[in-house]
Amino acid sequence: MALWIEKYRPQSFDEIIGQKEIVEKLKAMAEKKEIQHMILSGPPGVGKTTSAVVLAKAVFGPDWNQNFIELNASDDRKLSVIQGKVKEFARTKPIDAPFKIILFDEADSLTQEAQQALRRMMEEYINTCRFVFSVNYQSNIIEPLQSRCAILRFQPLSKEDVHKFIKRIADSEKLEIDQEAMDALDYVSRGDLRTLVNLMQSLSNVSKKIDAKAVLQSSGLMDVSKTMDGLKTALSGDFKKSREIFSEIIDNGINMKELLISIFNIISTTDIVNDKVKNYVFEKLAETDYRIVEGATPFIQFQAFLAFLASLK
């Protein structure tokens, strides 16, 4: 059985979801067979790498693999690779094409030295090669490189776009998905299509009918209403009871990280906490998350957070 993530990866510009302006620009570049050095920046799962591959296919035709390499985060990012592999690829002549393309996937992890070395190479081999960087944060690229590159900012996908994509998959895989489940899928994936497709595939293995409850459970997120209950009891000053509620939620096997994220979502989108106090709640939440990431005992830290909420009363 094929992985859906490969099966539904866009093969042409028309299949790319959202990002209208960017796709227009890339199309124009492909038509003229003139592209610049580029930085594609945006959150994960919005189509950065896919757009780069689609662009390469559009420019180079069926034999696109000859003139295109992708350097992944798993490849060595040391200076020696830039000096060896990259330089070797960039300096040699392209085959039946005006230029070659090198894609640095997850270029956030390129070291400063490696970027400094690229800076000269980008100018020297402009006649034979174009460099494309895909990053989460544009500020991880040094300024001299930024100014040499056209910057394309990928936006997080909108709800409509995500729904359109879900419908497309549902139609071709003959899945049954109602509106509520779609909202749940959107909520869980947070605009990241890679997560979305993987989740849908794993759910479809269980049954062809997907409902909201199954989505929330399989994603490791609990029913939001329960979390909401726990928060409300904590805010009313009843620390013990809220601790009971949350320890039940945690016993059901939810990840502490996911729990914090869902609490964050609840607090930021509802009026459960007074606007004036939100500042302090978020600060405390961030502190809790930070401590857990640093290796403190999750449940103790979480209880500290609950005690803080109870003290607000």
Partner: peptide, 21 residues
């Protein structure tokens, strides 16, 4: 050099969309 790159983008793509600069 940012100006040169951006003008180049416009030159190639004819795009008038400003938000992505």
């Amino acid at each position: 050099s940012s100006i040169i790159t951006d003008l180049n983008t416009i030159y190639i793509t004819n795009s008038s969309h400003l938000d992505t600069f």
